[in-house]
């Protein structure tokens, strides 16, 4: 019995050795990625669970309790949650509209699709600067437009708005920049979903007398729900992670991403910064799990109403 085991083990060992010999070119890249990810996780946990005061070796929750009692952190958490809740559907909606416009085949379709990808190609920092300039106070294009200085458009405000002076409008600017920049990604994913629908399916439904409404809700919607799920899941993660737009446009108002920068570079406290980062990751994982469940329910409901 044991010899058999030994034989089996020898064969397995031989197989493994051959396998490793065959796939060794894969290993450096994987080790690089895994190694850094382990470093990131270990350092994050060590930093956030050690005290900034004292010897730092004892596992301690003091960083967490300190930031949780910090009004700035609570506001940042609230603002970022709101940013995610409002921004994710907006990006989905914009992606759906753009994809719908490009769904039909027409002469310049590929050219126009390339144009629609420009926001994605532009560096995020440039987009943020662009929003910064356009929404300038008191004399940016947007203020002049809203004041009615460009006929024939009517004026809707009497005084120019100082966009970056209140947390609400400053985060609104960040949201505008973020949605403008990311819409092409949502558009491409949804477009891929739409294009994978077999046109014969729609023709068949039409010839059997299904109305446009029925075709839309009974065929197109159920079939693009996987694409919509991907958009919602990926976009919500990106919303939580956002740094650059609030950094440029809402620097003084609390936001999770910029708070990490504030704790680390301004107050020189890596423990607090790491604790915020851990909470951000928890928020992302939590949101993803909840959304995954919800989208699963939606999928079942849409396919068998």
């Amino acid at each position: 019995m044991s010899t058999l085991n030994n034989q089996v083990m020898a064969v397995t060992f031989e197989k493994c050795r051959n396998g490793v010999l065959k796939v060794w070119p894969l290993l450096p890249a994987i080790l690089y990625l895994v190694g850094f990810q382990i470093i990131v996780l270990v350092y994050l946990l060590l930093l956030s669970f050690s005290s900034p005061h004292g010897n730092g070796a004892v596992p301690s929750l003091s960083s967490y309790s300190l930031i949780l009692s910090d009004r700035q952190f609570r506001e940042a958490l609230f603002n970022t949650t709101l940013f995610t809740i409002v921004g994710t559907p907006l990006e989905l909606l914009a992606g759906l509209v753009f994809a719908a416009l490009l769904y039909r085949s027409f002469m310049l379709r590929n050219v126009i699709r390339s144009l629609f990808l420009i926001p994605l190609a532009l560096p995020a920092l440039v987009t943020a600067m662009l929003i910064y300039v356009l929404f300038d106070y008191p004399g940016g294009h947007v203020n002049h437009f809203l004041l009615g200085n460009y006929p024939p458009f009517p004026g809707v405000i009497a005084e120019p708005i100082c966009w970056r002076a209140s947390p609400f409008t400053a985060l609104l600017l960040s949201l505008i920049g973020k949605v403008w920049r990311d819409t092409p990604i949502s558009m491409l994913i949804i477009l891929a979903g739409l294009n994978s629908i077999d046109p014969e399916l729609l023709d068949a439904a039409k010839s059997m007398g299904a109305s446009l409404r029925q075709r839309f809700f009974r065929i197109i919607v159920p079939l693009i729900i996987p694409s919509i799920s991907v958009v919602v899941l990926l976009r919500s993660v990106e919303m939580w992670k956002e740094f650059i737009f609030p950094f440029v446009l809402a620097g003084r108002y609390p936001f999770l991403g910029t708070l990490i920068d504030f704790y680390y570079n301004e107050t020189g406290n890596p423990h607090h910064a790491a604790a915020v980062a851990v909470i951000m990751v928890i928020c992302i994982v939590g949101t993803t799990l909840v959304l995954y469940k919800l989208l699963d329910l939606l999928k079942r409901y849409a396919v068998h109403p």
Partner: peptide, 24 residues
């Protein structure tokens, strides 16, 4: 599994991994 792992590395927020990497 390898492909899934590679994607999930990208989903980890840069702003969260930058602190440990700078410290390292």
């Amino acid at each position: 599994l390898v492909l899934l792992g590679i994607i999930s590395v990208r989903l980890f927020p840069d702003i969260a991994s930058v602190i440990p990497i700078v410290e390292f």
